[in-house]
Amino acid sequence: MRVLIVEDEEKLARNVASVLKEVASSAVDLSHDGEDGLHMALTNSYDLIILDLMLPKVDGLTLLARLRTRKIQTPVLVLTARDAGSEVIRGLNLGCDDYVTKPFDMGELVARCKALIRRCHGQASSLIRVGPLAINTLSRQVEFGGQSFLLPAMEYRLLEYLAMRSGEVISKTEILDHLYDFHAERFSNVIEVYISALRRRFDPAPPYKLIHTLKGHGYMLGERAA
């Protein structure tokens, strides 16, 4: 999952980012003002945007409104001061999906982030099942064949993303966009590397039943007769 945090308090943004990386294995981009944040949100595809309302240059609500007029439907979680009820209402009307008041509990923030991303992909439960796979997005445990696995971060990230959108064909660029933050070193066949790692674990021999490669289109996770 790839998350954008637009927050002018740099230390706070950094802390949220480190927690999201460590706990939710997300790729995180940081932006410290509204102008830059808007640019980032328009040029990259994110699974979630965490947005502070009091921002320099362009304030949070304006940023949100511009995103929505550009038809960008990425879920937005708003960070706001406790006594700003009217701002929350305006934010919800403008199309924010959830909000957390400052000072906030990091655990709650992460839980809400995960829930927003899940719901955005049509997964209401924190447990995603795809065929023989059961992915617990809270504990990051993957159950397969009566065994429980704790995958390396990038493998988990990829699996979770594919599972969220199971049944859909997802292009390689799309996967890259959602798995890596702006500063990550990308190399072209990284996805192939992780796909084959996942296959070794859960779908060892062709014909593949779970992880499918559609040449020229991308990848798809889902049980399908090969």
Partner: peptide, 23 residues
């Protein structure tokens, strides 16, 4: 309102630092 916001900001930051560290 400004004063409470300004006071709350370092508080939020400190709290987030603690939370992030205790993960």
């Amino acid at each position: 309102s400004d004063a409470s916001h300004e006071l709350r900001t370092p508080l939020s930051v400190a709290q987030s630092t603690i939370d992030a560290t205790l993960v």
